[in-house]
Structure formats: structure tokens, C-alpha cells
């Protein structure tokens, strides 16, 4: 279905744009990524700065922070995820409509960060939900968040309609929510999403 490049450029000179449906589909999705409005710790302050005038995340069409997971495309896990908070984050992820994406913002959301040895801190949100983009930093600057968003846009534009998992009827509709156990969350991770590194 590829269009002859010479013909395409000739048509564009006359104001006619030819593109595959997939391009239009992905272009509309990546140009209006609506994040969910929630922050967990200090990274959220940087996220707010990215949304404000100086860094202006609206340039990427991602300024519409939704107060409800029903309307959100992107979950920015901005900050330390405590074990108390982890089931809530997973439940919010489950309540988001497909297709949904996750950005783990900052060292804490990626791995627990400086609190990795803490008894009450989850050692990375990717143990429970699939993370698309990891943004390192403590906290990452707004530029880093914007860069992560651009990386996510690149990822979205590379996705194919033919093997889109959100149209797959057999794919699970929600991930299991961890429970509070006597010592730790149960289970400590979801084997479908994350596997402990081999020693």
C-alpha cells in the first residue's frame, strides 16, 4: 500500500496529502495523550512545572490532565510508590480505557530510588503494571519528562494496527490488584509483567 514517493511529493505540492490510515490513527493518538492527574511525591512538582507556562506540555497535546482514569491515556507515575499506595495505582491503571500507557517518572517509580531498602516502598512500579517509558532522575527535570513524552510519541507512531493488543479479544482486561499481606504485598510481583533478575 506504499505510495510512490515521487507521486506523493508531487501531490503535496498541489495541497493533496496521501497517507496510510495507520499514520493518521497513530498521529491523532500521539498528538492528544491525556495524562491522568495524580502525583505521588516530589516528582509530581516537576510534572506540574512541565504543565505550567515555562515548559508548557501543551505543545505536545498532553496538557489535559484528567481527574478521572476513564478519560486518561497516560499514567505518569510521578514519585515514590509506597506499598500502601501500590494497589491503588494498579486499580487506577485497570480503570483506564485501552490503549493506555505508563511513564515511570523518577528513580523511585523505577526502582524505589533512595528508599529502595525501605520496608514500605515498592521497588519499582513495573512489578505490577507494564511501563512503557522510564525517566531516570531524582527528580527528573521537566525537560526530561518532555523527552520521555516524545519517546512515548515515537513509540506510539511505530505501533501497528494489525497487531494492536488493545483490539485483541483474548488479552486480559485487567491486571490483578495486589493485596496487603502480613509482611509484604501479595503477590510481591506479577510474573506476567515482571520477573526477578537472574543472579
Amino acid at each position: 500500500m506504499a505510495v510512490d514517493p515521487q507521486l506523493q511529493s508531487e501531490l503535496e505540492k498541489r495541497g493533496v496529502f496521501v497517507m496510510p490510515v495507520e499514520f493518521l490513527y497513530n498521529w491523532s493518538r500521539k498528538s492528544s495523550i491525556w495524562p491522568m492527574q495524580f502525583g505521588l511525591a516530589c516528582c509530581a512538582i516537576e510534572m506540574i512545572a512541565a504543565a505550567a507556562a515555562r515548559y508548557d506540555i501543551a505543545r505536545f497535546g498532553a496538557e489535559v490532565f484528567r481527574a478521572s482514569p476513564r478519560q486518561a491515556d497516560l499514567m505518569i507515575v510521578a514519585g515514590t510508590v509506597t506499598k500502601k499506595m501500590a494497589p491503588l495505582v494498579v486499580r487506577l491503571y485497570n480503570q483506564m480505557p485501552e490503549p493506555k500507557y505508563v511513564i515511570a517518572m523518577g528513580a523511585c517509580a523505577i526502582s524505589g530510588g533512595p528508599f529502595k531498602e525501605g520496608y514500605n516502598v515498592l521497588k519499582g512500579i513495573d512489578r505490577y503494571i507494564p511501563v512503557d517509558i522510564h525517566i531516570p532522575g531524582c527528580p527528573p527535570r521537566p525537560e526530561a519528562l518532555l523527552h520521555g513524552l516524545m519517546a512515548l510519541q515515537e513509540k506510539i507512531s511505530g505501533q501497528r494496527l494489525t497487531d494492536a493488543r488493545w483490539y485483541d479479544k483474548n488479552a486480559p482486561a485487567e491486571l490483578p490488584v495486589p493485596q496487603y499481606g502480613p509482611h509484604d504485598l501479595e503477590p510481591p510481583y506479577h510474573p506476567d509483567v515482571w520477573k526477578p533478575p537472574k543472579p
Partner: peptide, 20 residues
């Protein structure tokens, strides 16, 4: 035509900021 439909009990539950 385009919207993926993946209903689940959690998705249909009342939104309570992530709490059950």
C-alpha cells in the same frame, strides 16, 4: 468503529480515587 472494548468489573466500578 475504533474504540477497543475491554469491559471489566474494576472499570465499571465507582471511581473512588483507586480505593476499592
Amino acid at each position: 468503529l475504533l474504540a477497543p472494548r475491554k469491559p471489566s468489573p474494576t472499570k465499571h466500578a465507582t471511581y473512588e480515587c483507586g480505593l476499592a
